[in-house]
Design a protein around this nucleic acid. Sequence first.
DNA 1: AGCATGATTGACT
DNA 2: GTCAATCATGCTA
Length: 207
Amino acid sequence: MSQLYDFFTGRPTEMIARELLGKTLIYHTPAGTISGYVTEAEAYLGPNDSAAHAYAGKRTPANEALYREPGTIYIYSIHGRYSFDVATQAAGTPEGILVRGLEPAEGISLMEQNRAKHGFELTNGPGKLMEAFGINDKALNLVHLDDAPLTISLTGKEPQEVGESPRIGVSQKGDSTFLPLRYFVKGNPFVSGMRKRDMDLVRHGWQ
DNA sequence: AGCATGATTGACT
DNA sequence: GTCAATCATGCTA
């Protein structure tokens, strides 16, 4: 199996989400290459996780990607936006990781064009980073990272310190609501909701 | 009808 | 400039 396939299985999804911080998300477009380092990610733990799309074994055409091979792209829409997930664990085990923040690396001018914003507002949220990448449909849903123009490089940066918190926007009911399954690079300004006084403007929280 | 969201507003400092 | 509250948004079931 491929390197990416192996990366997204073999240990708990919480651990994979944490290790995903600092890895590079890369998108090859006709206009040029866009990439960024993952600053924020959340783990969703499938049937037993009351906040997960696959809670209680729920399976629909929309969340089918969660049930596929590790490293399968799961794109879903919410509130008229698109978000980017990667399926983790063996096929049939519907766990996954939501990427909520990126620090831009390549193609910054393309992202500014796509978003009509600049600076930290470019990619500090799940819908924002998809808009910055120019992704506004589900064409890549169900495609594996190994076979798509959108992929992840396991090289990148190393966080100085990883922060944890409950996940953002999960409805306030169910046992899993308050589990600390959100991981972020402490001090990085491209993390959603990062307050200015908590930002590390020198190293952005990287080693 | 219900959301794993984001932009804007308006009261603060 | 910061922060919390509010609501427009469009896809999914």
